[in-house]
Nucleic acid binder design. Structure first.
Lengths: 217, 217
DNA sequence: ACCTGAACACCGTTCAAGT
DNA sequence: ACCTGAACACCGTTCAAGT
């Protein structure tokens, strides 16, 4: 990225992370190698080590930027409403960046945005009166539902039209006699595409159950 | 693996898959490269291509063997009981093979054991009287809970004793002032290790909710 | 039929050298 | 202060050659 006078505007961490996200969004996380990302920034891959510690640090940094996109409702009087909005916001953030959900579950060290995410989520439950044990289980059940469903949704990374064609081709050779219920399941997905709402269905199921247990406790 | 007479007993697909699982269990999925797996079998990596199409085929094959370990209760009169046993069996299989859960969610082509798993799971719900729409959502909610929770549990792949020490060291430098609820959450996990049951807690929450909706439908 | 060696196009990472 | 070239120890995969 040469400036008018011909010299380069020097790289910085922010630009590296942004370019990493853009590259991962466009070509998948597998395309994000140090060399390839360097190339996208007009620089050799080794130059990136001036701005990130190593590749894991790069991925952690990218992921924390995704965490910044998640809405964190605070001070809502209804824990259910606040938790629901946060969960939907996290889910849609994962869908916007299809590579992010699997990194999210795999990462060990958390950046500041993810810490803030965790802290507000836990505080919301605590302030709603969940006792420690129930709080812990409630929290994990909710988080698992978010990441689990995001991963599932991303297993079919196909455009709606594309999806239908491939699905029908697939069904033609599918051993429907041996796996009749799987065949029916595929047909159901082909014909009810876009009905969506599977995520919110399960989420409400969980939140309703938790609310019942909260008032009982 | 030389025979008494000095010649090799030739490789086959089964032995390759078994060795792949053993290597992944012992040293993590990252250790499973064609060259490294070949070495574990006393052969050069290129020899494996006589028994698997490529690395993805190797991983798919390994995963289908894991699917074979999952108990599939059939003909149970109570869908809840059958589904519960299958879910717990799948969950524990993932825990036995810590690398398997993330591959499970990421794989596209399914082997025969996974097809059987899907088919019996879906049939159980259908025979219980779930209408197609509810069936589909119920199924995905359950599967997401299984894989989501397995992934979560594996994010802390530490022995109990090890866990406590590392956790306490971590807490000493943790900015508890800024993230008080995260700090409390970590403390809770350190002191209530082994209470477990988080998976089954959420599972029952989901199954109860689904049963309510089934009878209402 | 099965395995090997050499080759190709990639990886992450380090480090001395350049400006 | 920032970037590059060369190097090291790895990848998955192909293919002609060996037995």
């Amino acid at each position: 990225m040469p400036k008018p006078d011909g010299r380069r505007v020097p790289l910085n961490r922010d630009r590296v992370l942004e370019a990493g996200i853009a590259l991962a969004d466009a070509e998948g996380i597998a395309a994000v190698s140090m060399r390839r990302l360097g190339q996208a920034l007009g620089v050799k891959g080794m130059a990136l080590y001036n701005h990130v510690d190593n590749k894991q640090d790069l991925l952690d940094g990218m992921l924390d930027r995704i965490a910044e996109e998640i809405e964190l409702p605070e001070g809502s009087r209804d824990w259910r409403e606040g938790t629901r909005r946060r969960a939907v916001s996290a889910y849609t953030a994962f869908l916007r960046h299809p590579w992010s959900a699997s990194l999210w579950t795999a990462s060990i060290t958390l950046g500041p945005a993810r810490m803030r995410y965790l802290d507000t989520a836990l505080r919301g439950l605590r302030e709603a009166g969940f006792p420690p044990d129930l709080l812990d289980r409630a929290f994990h059940t909710i988080e698992n539902h978010i990441t689990g469903h995001a991963l599932q949704a991303l297993d079919f990374p196909l455009a709606p039209g594309e999806m239908r064609q491939i699905g029908e081709d697939y069904l033609r050779t599918f051993p429907a006699g041996r796996y009749p219920d799987v065949a029916a399941h595929i047909r159901h997905h082909l014909h009810h595409r876009g009905s969506g709402g599977g995520f919110e269905f399960g989420l409400d199921l969980i939140l309703d159950g938790l609310e019942r247990m909260r008032t009982a406790a």
